[in-house]
Amino acid sequence: MNPSDRYEVVVQGKPQGPFSLDELRAMKLRPTDFVKPVGHPEFKELREIETLSKALNIAHQSTQPQYFASMDMRLLSTAIDYFFAFCGYAVLAAIYLGGTANTPTRIPTLLMGLALVPIFKFVACVILEGSRKQASFGKILIGVKVTDEQGKPIGYGKAATRNLAKLVGVITLGIGFLSGFFDRRQQCLHDKIAGTLVIKDRLI
């Protein structure tokens, strides 16, 4: 944490600030007051932000995720991810068409090349969900991210496990995905296998 950082605080239900660290000290905030560094996407309880709570002499206390992405949000993010993956394939297809003569094999080759779309999506999801972003392109655009069951980043290994486990949903003819509708935390089968959650920003 940089002493020059600025913070916003929810006061009487409304975000106020930005405030400096010294100004926060003077405000005598409670552990349950909502705070966020300027530029961050969501407010958190002060006690949840380890470095800031320590600077303000407040006991740090992690909180389990409470706000989960609904299935329609997850479906939308998946559709966006496939769109970006298809765009990547379209670029390669254009390069291929520009470099080949008009032969009978062009159309079959392009059709077989469509198999690259889910591969592109898989690679992008593993890289992005395992990164500090914690979210694929689609999840970033709709404001959700992937965490472990304690709300922490999952890393590349767990991201790979999560996305490989989606094959179980395909093998079960979609039942593995639909199971998320009946789960309190909206966990699909691949999330349960990998020990992950898809969470959204707090409603504040």
Rank of each mutant, 00 (worst) to 15 (best):
P41T: 06
F83M: 12
R30G: 05
K200N: 06
T103I: 06
A94P: 11
F181L: 15
K158P: 05
G138Y: 00
A94T: 05
R202V: 07
Q150I: 00
I154H: 06
V198G: 05
R6F: 03
F43G: 00
K121R: 15
D183M: 02
D81F: 05
P18L: 00
S179T: 09
T63V: 00
T63A: 02
L203H: 15
E149A: 10
D5P: 14
A55Q: 13
R185W: 09
L173A: 11
F86W: 11
A26P: 11
I49K: 02
Y96Q: 02
F86T: 07
G39N: 12
G130H: 10
Q134L: 11
I58D: 05
V117D: 03
G143P: 07
E45Y: 03
A85L: 03
G180Q: 03
F83H: 11
P153A: 00
D5H: 14
I49A: 01
L164C: 05
M1F: 08
M71L: 07
Q186V: 07
K28D: 11
L128Y: 13
Q150F: 05
G195H: 02
P104N: 00
V91T: 06
T103S: 14
A26R: 14
S20L: 03
Y67W: 08
L167S: 07
F43V: 00
T147N: 10
H190I: 03
T196H: 01
F137R: 06
P18Y: 06
R162W: 00
Y82R: 10
I140M: 15
E149L: 13
L92V: 04
K200F: 01
G195E: 02
E149W: 09
G113R: 13
E45Q: 08
K14N: 09
P31A: 01
L46N: 00
L141I: 03
A135K: 12
A26Q: 14
K14R: 11
Y82G: 02
V91D: 04
F122T: 04
K152H: 07
G88L: 13
A55Y: 11
N57T: 15
G176N: 03
I154Y: 06
A135Y: 07
L203E: 14
A101K: 13
T147A: 10
L203T: 09
V91G: 05
H40N: 10
E8P: 10
R184Y: 10
E8K: 15
A194D: 04
E129V: 07
K36C: 01
M71W: 07
K14H: 07
S136D: 07
K200P: 06
D72Y: 12
R6Q: 13
G98K: 15
V35I: 09
A93G: 11
H60K: 14
A85F: 01
R202F: 07
R202S: 13
I175Y: 15
R106A: 11
D33Y: 08
I127N: 13
P118W: 02
I204N: 15
Q134P: 11
Y7S: 03
L197Q: 05
T109F: 08
S70T: 00
A94H: 14
V144G: 03
K145G: 04
L116K: 10
G143V: 04
D22I: 01
Y7N: 03
P18E: 05
L75A: 12
G88M: 12
L197G: 01
S53W: 04
C87R: 15
I95F: 15
K152Q: 09
L167H: 08
D33P: 09
I95K: 15
G39K: 13
G130N: 09
V38E: 12
E42V: 06
H40A: 08
I107Y: 09
